[in-house]
């Protein structure tokens, strides 16, 4: 177990190194940098100084070494478009909004999804089951892009129940300003409801056919007891294995919703930096987002074995 964790950790570091390298050279291949446009009208001496400040006059490989050394000590770079802002300062400001949106979406979506999944499995082949599964397919097919626009139009635009755009700031950052967060949360949570209700239903139906359920029934246990103690516990494994992917998807999944509702989150800012060709910022954000993504997957890989002892980690391959 320990050696497996250590090996996975080493792999993780290697992966990050390769991702950073690939991102660096990809960005180096982007035609034009944000300075080209800005320095056109400046005198040559100032232009020279600016290029020197950002190290853009140095050869590619030297820039690569400097960047990587910066990453290693946690210096992710400074914005070219907004001088003085660093990747850290920006993320400190933007991450809470994205995190809150993501957590709210997942808690609500997965919660409701699991309840619906249990109902669909318990009432198999009734109209309730068909209704839930049909709804799930419908929700999967409506992109949250459209869903967000629809909610915004109806509840914020026509009915005026909620503000159209915006996000709580200051002391309301985590717990206040609910009127701002309700619509974006709803818009994003439906894909979780759809995915998890289907997942849990299938997995519960698998477990119901197992022999230990028959044993439990023959012991005369109540239906409630069987479902809670035996069926549900064993059918949670696929849910848990899917959870990290959801968290990882959540990091980039909110790009669209943040755009629709103008939420000052990571996704919104990433797209902004891309549109402004702010290379150091893109580099830094890509690396940090990848770190979050990879760490989440790493933790789950370790968690799998804890949750389900049947999963063997011999040789580290499943």
């Amino acid at each position: 177990m320990l050696s497996y964790s250590i090996r996975r950790f080493a792999e993780m570091i290697l992966t990050l190194f390769i991702i950073a390298t690939a991102t660096f050279f990809l960005l180096a291949a982007v035609p034009g940098d944000p300075l080209t446009e800005r320095v056109e009208k400046l005198p040559p001496q100032i232009r020279q100084n600016l290029y020197e400040k950002y190290g853009l006059n140095k050869p590619l490989l030297e820039r690569y070494v400097i960047t990587m050394r910066g990453l290693a000590v946690g210096n992710f770079g400074e914005s070219i478009v907004y001088p003085g802002q660093t990747v850290q300062s920006i993320l400190q400001e933007k991450l809470p909004a994205s995190a809150r949106l993501g957590i709210q979406q997942m808690v609500l979506g997965i919660g409701i999804g699991m309840i619906l999944g249990i109902i669909a499995a318990m009432k198999k082949n009734t109209w309730l089951d068909y209704g839930i599964i049909t709804l799930a397919i419908l929700f999967i097919s409506i992109p949250h892009l459209i869903f967000g626009l629809l909610l915004q139009k109806i509840f914020a635009g026509e009915l005026g129940w909620f503000p159209v755009i915006g996000w709580p700031k200051g002391k309301d950052l985590w717990t206040g300003g609910w009127q701002y967060t309700i619509l974006p949360t709803l818009a994003g949570c439906f894909s979780y409801i759809a995915a998890y209700s289907r997942l849990l239903k299938t997995s519960m139906l698998d477990v119901v056919n197992q022999e230990y359920i028959l044993t439990a029934e023959s012991k005369g246990l109540s239906k409630m007891h069987i479902v809670l103690k035996h069926v549900l516990r064993n059918s949670l494994i696929p849910v848990i294995t899917n959870l990290p992917m959801s968290i990882a998807m959540c990091i980039t999944g909110s790009f669209f919703i943040e755009r629709i509702f103008s939420i000052p989150g990571v996704g919104m800012y990433y797209v902004l930096s891309v549109n402004e060709r702010d290379l150091p910022l893109i580099m830094g954000q890509t690396v940090i987002l990848s770190i979050i993504y990879i760490v989440v997957i790493f933790i789950t890989d370790i968690l799998y074995t804890v949750v389900d002892p049947r999963i063997s980690i011999q040789g580290g391959r499943r």
């Binding site: 992966t15 390769i18 991702i19 991102t23 990809l26 960005l27 291949a29 982007v30 035609p31 990882a248 990091i251 980039t252 790009f255 990433y270 797209v271 891309v274 060709r277 893109i282 890509t286 987002l289 990848s290 993504y293 990879i294 997957i297």
Partner: peptide, 21 residues
């Protein structure tokens, strides 16, 4: 494959779009 899939897909797509126009 493991390397490619260990990175957020949307980020790769956006970066590639940036490079290629």
């Amino acid at each position: 494959i493991e390397l490619i899939t260990s990175m957020p897909t949307l980020l790769i797509t956006i970066l590639t779009m940036m490079v290629l126009g």
